[in-house]
Design a binder for these strands. Sequence first.
DNA 1: GCATTCCCTACTAAATTGATAGGGTTAATA
DNA 2: TATTAACCCTATCAATTTAGTAGGGAATGC
Lengths: 139, 139
Amino acid sequence: MLSKKTKYGLKALTYIARSEGDMPVQVAVIAKSEQIPQKFLESILLTLRKSGILGSKKGKHGGYYLRHEPSEIKMTDVMRVLEGPIAMVPCVSLNYYEKCDDCPDEHLCSVNKLMLQVRDSTLKVFRNTTLADLSSTNE
Amino acid sequence: MLSKKTKYGLKALTYIARSEGDMPVQVAVIAKSEQIPQKFLESILLTLRKSGILGSKKGKHGGYYLRHEPSEIKMTDVMRVLEGPIAMVPCVSLNYYEKCDDCPDEHLCSVNKLMLQVRDSTLKVFRNTTLADLSSTNE
DNA sequence: GCATTCCCTACTAAATTGATAGGGTTAATA
DNA sequence: TATTAACCCTATCAATTTAGTAGGGAATGC
């Protein structure tokens, strides 16, 4: 299951992308429009800022903005920040590889074999999708 | 992340498929060979039996066996039994569809749009993979 | 009748998730 | 320079899920 954190994060990014008029967007505005608990959203946007996807401005008329064009923001990056590793098991993870304690030989492991395929196909989707795709309303 | 339940279940199924010599395979044997807590494995195999994937025989020389040929056992079925819905959000699930409370229009929802693609690509893998594929050692 | 093996229910510890609370810091502007 | 609007940060917490344990019941084969 997708965590609420990721769901909210994606919705917020989409909202910001659709609002692009140079003005930063405030947490309170997004929270209200997307029906997300404001404090929870604050912490999510903070994570996105720390990861470099969002920028922020404090004080009056402050808020969050995208650091790059929506078409430059790939889902691989967004999903890794929000949801963590894309692979369903560490032994097939590109960025967080870890050997299984059991499992003497990965190449004989049926779980590894299956999850490698799942990872590849999911990765293909995330690599080919940007925030611009998510925020476009048509198609 | 893949749950241990699913991981253990897949390993056990693979083990049984590889052992096929008409004799049922005992939980204790699988547990020892695959390093799975026996009691936990018992409950997993029970689930697989109740779902119709495995059959069982009680008493001496009893154990679990496949109800169908490995090449007939699709990962879509196995994964749904072990891990639950394949979709990451209920609003794109084929078998467990549920509307989001928020989200006035699914077709405008960026999360829906993305997760629909992920579901389709994952489903394609699971539909094209059977237990026979998992248990074959070559390739 | 006795060992073996699956069957079933209940319980529990640990981790994760989805928040909430409460205040601190920075920036604009009157 | 005081005020207010906004982000920033840490701590805490309840609910849920996960991973596993305990203990015995029921069927089968010898």
